[in-house]
Design a protein around this nucleic acid. Structure first.
Length: 273
DNA sequence: ACGAGCGCCTGTCGGC
DNA sequence: TGCCGACAGGCGCTCG
């Protein structure tokens, strides 16, 4: 469940709360349980519960694809990777098959980290920068300009698709939203970043923001068994649409491999020079 | 500096 | 029906 719009949707849900999912802000932690030790990056499983016990939740934010839960003394960071999910539930229901961690609260609620593929990771640290320090800029940050973006692109010599997936270049894009952004911007995924024009860079940044904002508006994308109520998957332009007509020109969307990742594009709208 | 390949994991789907 | 490989929203590592 893992790109920026889905993570943003999860943070918003945990923060604001709904009748079916009360807000976590202000809740006090009784203890934490780890069911798959490798899901916990730091500290040790032995230290985790003692250290988190008694702290309360002050804030819930997102940085790139990381969920940051600011506690009284520490920060709990969660990265969902490929199949992770984070939600509240009543503290008395049985622990589900793929739960890797739960946090129990004084009011009887529980925060559950569910992750079938076990790729997700949890950190409990005093300084979140030690985890997120290597991330690139936030694409939706208004202080990040097209000029900045162009400069960063020109400083690299990589294929655009691979570069946009690199979290130290830009934080938050994954396979879906990279394909969607490049299609909206009419830029080929294999174009090398040092050949991007200033006009293309500006167009790509606008496209990235439009795609991310549209997806956030729709609560992200729900695919396969990982369902969160988002419906952006019904508005995909290119991702997972190989063999289907391009929504703009009708040409059949193609699928290639770029850096091990399935990549979808329109050979008519997105041309290499 | 960059790309390819692999490991980490479970579940689903299509082909035979 | 069953088996088997390919594939999936990510990312860190090693090796040329």
């Amino acid at each position: 469940m893992p790109e920026l719009p889905e993570v943003e949707t999860i943070c918003r849900t945990l923060r604001a709360g709904f009748p079916t999912s009360p807000s976590l802000i202000g809740l006090t932690i009784i203890d934490g349980q780890i069911f798959w030790p490798r899901s916990l990056e730091t500290p040790s499983v032995a230290e985790f519960s003692d250290r988190i016990s008694g702290q309360s939740i002050n804030q819930i934010n997102r940085r790139g694809k990381f969920i940051l839960i600011t506690l009284s003394r520490d920060t709990l960071l969660i990265h969902l990777r490929m199949s992770g999910d984070l939600f509240t539930e009543q503290g008395n229901v049985p622990i589900a098959t793929h739960h890797r961690m739960v946090i129990n609260f004084q009011n009887g609620l529980r925060l559950a980290f569910n992750d079938p593929r076990k790729f997700g990771r949890v950190w409990l640290v005093s300084d979140p920068e030690t985890v997120t320090g290597g991330l690139g800029p936030e694409p939706l940050d208004e202080n990040f300009t097209a000029v900045d973006f162009f400069g960063r692109l020109r400083a690299s010599r990589r294929q655009l698709k691979a570069l946009l997936l690199d979290q130290s270049f830009l934080a938050g894009l994954g396979n879906i939203y990279t394909d969607e952004s490049l299609h909206l911007a009419h830029i080929h995924p294999l174009l090398h970043s040092q050949n991007v024009t200033e006009e293309q860079a500006a167009r790509l940044l606008v496209s990235i923001r439009q795609v991310l904002n549209d997806a956030i508006q729709r609560n992200g994308s729900s695919i396969d068994w990982v369902y969160r109520g988002g419906d952006f998957q019904n508005y995909f332009r290119a991702y997972d649409r190989d063999g289907h007509p391009c929504p703009e020109c009708g040409t059949i969307i193609q699928r290639i491999k770029v850096g091990q990742r399935g990549t979808h594009f329109c050979p008519q709208c997105q041309r290499l020079p």
